[in-house]
Write a protein that binds this DNA or RNA. Structure first.
Length: 515
RNA sequence: GCCCCGGUAGUAUAGCCCGGUCAAGUAUGUGGGCCUUUCGAGCCCAUGACCCGGGUUCAAAUCCCGGCCGGGGCACCA
């Protein structure tokens, strides 16, 4: 079992994942299938976000679960890009999605792109017509697209529905040859004209898209006849041997629609499991809304995987959330605090501690005779990671340093505070700067005086900027950090004590991860 | 309007198919305590839920009916 884990995950905390995976309910009729085959089928019109990552993680979790139980299992990645007009694929999305999946520790056994498989869909379409499972509604025949639409309301089949397959095959060839413009001809699956759900009645399987006007980013204008979602999915799921389909509730009617393709072709329909919608309070998971924001898809304000990755969220945190939410058909509402709490558990032991102050205010400690030395642990729970020292030399009997604005505001004349690991001071006056004198040195005295313990930065600290997302805004927190922060490598997550976890992005820039 | 699918503590989830062991488990949150030179983590204690009404039954979170509430679908989108 453990050997099946991608290295990225194995390095971290495989036990907890394993536990979550074991707890997943078994898939229906799992004994019936020799190889449990699952697929993740994104539309490459955008990158993955928290909502679209759910089926990917759950599918992959099931693969691991069954492999762990000694059964064969397969995970297939399939790009569904059969609409160059209204859901135009984003050329960068193919690679971006692959990267998102790899970041999640997901590996796929096979990969397909639907726009490469057009001849397969044409082939099956012809077989469907031959078998009398589909017909063409076309301009200039006794069954125009308008007639077909009417037939769904009246229940009276339009003429081509009962025609000999050869007539419909001929019309289909005319579609392929370009005799018809957009909207002038469609191939329709015969279902049930009296079905209680009107959308199930004789639905469109093939339609014409003018790819000279809307070229496909991968195959350009090579094809004008395109399969619809339900048709291409039915075909691919069968041809790829998919045994179980896990998808959102919004697809439940599609299972009904697709059953007619399976019935006409004499194929066995895969098991479908539908789960409810995932909502994150305060974040939109609507692709169309995210796209219209006009900011890049990996921006730290967005709930895209790329955005979360840049923000400093660990892939395991996303796994944990998804496994907790599971596969129930009910909707689930989680908060970003849930995600941050999971992430905190993961980064807390790794992140070393440093001091930084936001909006610095100067403190002058007067009448200091000897130098002061602070010895700070890199991480209080792991003393073996070592310490660093900050030495403050008095100049003319004075030591100057910075504290943060919010701490400054809580001070009054006479307040006693402890500068962490350094000294206890008493405030003498408070103007643009704080004048203070040494009150005592040891921690016990600070406790006795009920002195708050605050972080500080020496006068020669490093200027820093922390970019802190708040809703759709990014707040720039400007401040100073102790010089040891210069040694932190780019990309590393550390904690600025009493402020929060931050990720270093350049010499003096940081991203606020969460508190 | 029509057609599906749901409703267990603040949130998430287990239990429901196969009624009793459920005066409902777990996680997280919240309150309190311990620990700790930040925060967090950790440990201990506490808090808190079966949508409502009928029915079946010796017995209902679990089965049936009705209501209410929520979600989804009703495309030549996926």
């Amino acid at each position: 079992m453990l050997s099946k884990w991608p290295e990225a995950l194995e390095e971290r905390r495989p036990e907890s994942y394993r536990k979550g995976i074991e707890d997943l309910p078994p898939l229906p009729n799992d004994n019936k299938y020799e190889v449990i085959t699952l697929r993740f089928a994104p539309n490459p019109d955008f990158v993955l976000h928290l909502g679209s990552a759910r089926p990917a993680i759950i599918d992959y979790a099931y693969k691991l679960k069954y492999e762990g139980a000694g059964k064969r299992a397969k995970f297939i990645l399939r790009f569904e890009d059969t609409d160059p007009r209204t859901k135009r694929p984003m050329p960068e999305a193919y690679d971006a999605i692959r990267e998102d999946l790899r970041w999640l520790g997901i590996r796929w056994d096979e990969e397909y792109i639907q726009s490469d498989r057009m001849s397969i869909y044409y082939d099956i379409a012809k077989k469907m017509i031959e078998r009398g499972g589909a017909y063409i509604a076309a301009k200039g025949t006794d069954c125009t697209p308008e007639d077909w639409k009417k037939s769904k309301v009246t229940g009276v089949p339009c003429k081509n529905r009962n025609e000999d397959p050869s007539i419909n095959l001929e019309l289909f060839d005319k579609m392929l040859e370009g005799h018809y413009q957009e909207g002038e001809a469609v191939m329709v699956i015969k279902t049930d004209l009296k079905h209680p759900d009107p959308s199930v009645r004789d639905w469109v399987a093939m339609r014409i898209i003018d790819t000279t006007k809307y070229p496909h980013p991968r195959v350009g204008s090579r094809y004008i006849v395109w399969p619809t979602y339900n048709f291409s999915v039915s075909i691919d799921d069968h041809l790829m041997g998919i045994t179980h389909i896990l998808r959102a509730q919004e697809h439940s009617v599609n299972t009904v629609k697709q059953s007619f393709v399976y019935a006409h072709m004499g194929w066995e329909q895969p098991e479908a499991i539908h789960f409810g919608r995932l909502k994150i309070v305060g974040m939109t998971l609507s692709k169309t809304r995210l796209k219209t924001l006009g900011i890049k898809w990996d921006d730290i304000r967005l709930p895209t995987l790329a955005g979360l990755r840049n923000r400093g969220i660990q892939p395991e945190a996303i796994w944990n959330i998804m496994l907790q939410v599971g596969v129930k058909p009910t909707d689930a509402t989680i908060t970003s605090d849930n995600l941050f709490a999971e992430n905190r558990k993961l980064i807390e032991p790794k992140a070393n501690r440093y001091m930084a102050v936001i909006n610095p205010v100067k403190v002058i400690i007067d009448n200091v005779q000897e130098r002061l030395i602070a010895r700070l642990p890199m991480h209080p729970s792991y003393p073996e990671r070592g310490y660093r020292e900050i030495i403050l030399e008095p100049i003319n009997g004075k030591i100057e340093l910075f504290i943060g604005r919010t701490d400054y505001e809580k001070l009054d004349k006479g307040s006693v505070i402890r500068l962490m690991e350094l000294v206890n001071i008493e405030v003498l006056s408070k103007d643009d700067v704080v004048m203070a004198r040494i009150h005592s040195k040891d921690l016990e005295s600070a406790r006795k005086a009920n002195a708050p313990i605050i972080q500080w930065v020496p006068i020669n600290g490093l200027p820093i900027t922390v970019n802190r997302p708040e809703g759709m805004k990014i707040i720039e927190d400007k401040g100073m950090a102790e010089r040891a922060v210069a040694q932190v490598s780019i990309g590393e997550i550390i904690q600025f004590m009493r402020y929060g976890f931050v990720k270093k992005t350049s010499k003096d820039d940081f991203i606020y991860v969460h508190d």
